[in-house]
């Protein structure tokens, strides 16, 4: 039981070249910038866009193989999909939406309705069975879309930004529900998201796609600790530098250097967590090995923290508490000193 996809296709500007394997019970989260090819990959797996070259197999069944000209049409793939804006059929009631897939697969009307009712009960939406989708809230629509996709018992479940259509306050609760409902599904699950929180909360494995190719893949801890691209670093909210290790420090490609005890030699990434970056009004004295001057480029308030973007060699993002920010009297364009302990610079080979 697993998904093995080797997909190569061109769609407008995008050239997608991806090899993706996923085990059942695993929740793979696809992240990446806009236009990177995440949704296109989902659509290729569902058979909604043809693959130019490659092979897709699910549990040993070949869904697509361009070398043998095999192509199972969408309606005969054991694949369920939750679309970004849910796409509940507006002319059908909620229960008819959920029962649609069963009806399409030849299940009798009464049987399909019965199973649909079971799904709605599981989703806590029994009261809405005969309502039209337009009367549902965003979170309810999402649950109906999920029930509709799961009702046909697919082996592969694809979710395209299932929380993107919701406003921020609703998201946390719906994310929790989604996680609970997804946990009961036994097949392969692939979810696309833009939201780091969603990725971290839901993923067993994160796959990063940029420019049509997979640039990094691993479990959550691995990807957050050792990002391999600027996008991933920003996604998980850390400072990433690329450079060359020269023994006990790393020379950064874009200028500047950072002392790091285990820098070693050769091409390397260095990661510095924003909360490990200290800001000072005067040149600090004492132990920190990495001290340099910069100017404040801007401050972003994020809940109980302030993220301060500092321009310098290298430029870096620091994270301080609001009182500390206040005390430092940070103004845009104002001069500051930055320090980072050498032991807080994590280096790994590029």
């Amino acid at each position: 039981m697993m998904l093995d996809a080797d997909v190569r296709l061109r769609l407008g500007e995008l050239l997608l070249e991806v090899r993706l394997k996923a085990a059942p019970g695993q929740l793979v989260v696809l992240v990446g910038p806009n236009g990177a090819g995440k949704t296109t990959l989902l659509r290729a797996l569902a058979g909604l866009v043809p693959v130019d070259e490659g092979r897709i197999s699910l549990n040993g069944e070949v869904l697509e193989d361009t070398s043998r000209e095999v192509r199972v049409p969408t309606e005969r793939r054991p694949v369920g999909m939750v679309f970004q804006n849910y796409l509940l059929f507006p002319h059908l009631s909620v229960i008819e939406n959920v029962a649609f897939g069963l009806r399409a697969r030849g299940v009798s009307r009464s049987e399909a309705r019965q199973q649909g009712a079971v799904w709605l009960e599981r989703m806590g939406l029994s009261a809405k069975a005969d309502a039209k989708p337009r009367s549902l809230s965003g979170g309810q629509s999402q649950r109906v879309a999920l029930a509709r996709a799961l009702a046909t018992s697919p082996s592969l479940l694809l979710l395209d930004e299932p929380l993107a259509a919701l406003d921020a306050p609703a998201r946390a609760g719906v994310r929790r529900d989604l996680r609970r409902h997804l946990a009961t599904f036994q097949g392969v699950r692939i979810l696309v998201t833009h939201d780091p929180l969603e990725a971290v909360a839901l993923a067993d494995r994160i796959v990063v796609i940029e420019g049509g190719t997979i640039v990094q893949s691993g479990d959550v801890a691995e990807v957050t600790a050792r990002p391999r691209s600027r996008y991933v670093a920003e996604f998980v909210g850390v400072n990433l530098f690329r450079g060359r290790g020269v023994g006990d420090s790393i020379e950064i490609d874009t200028g500047g250097a950072l002392a790091a005890p285990d820098a070693r030699w050769g091409d390397a990434f260095a990661v510095v967590h924003p909360h490990a970056v200290s800001i000072h009004r005067k040149e600090p004295e004492g132990s920190p090995r990495n001290v340099w001057r910069g100017t404040v480029e801007g401050c972003d308030f994020e809940g109980d923290r302030v993220r301060v973007r500092i321009q310098g060699t290298p430029s870096i993002v620091a994270e301080v508490t609001p009182p500390a920010a206040n005390e430092l009297d940070l103004v845009d364009g104002g001069p500051v000193w930055v320090s980072v302990k050498a032991t807080d610079v994590v280096v790994y080979p590029a």
Partner: peptide, 29 residues
């Protein structure tokens, strides 16, 4: 009309004719 509805119907196992009859036609009625 939103092509997505037809695609959604296809992922649910509906062939072209069924999609047309149960989704496309009611939407353009």
């Amino acid at each position: 009309s939103e092509r997505g509805y037809e695609e959604a119907a296809a992922t649910l196992g509906a062939g072209r004719w069924l999609v047309f009859r149960r989704v496309t036609l009611p939407l353009i009625a």
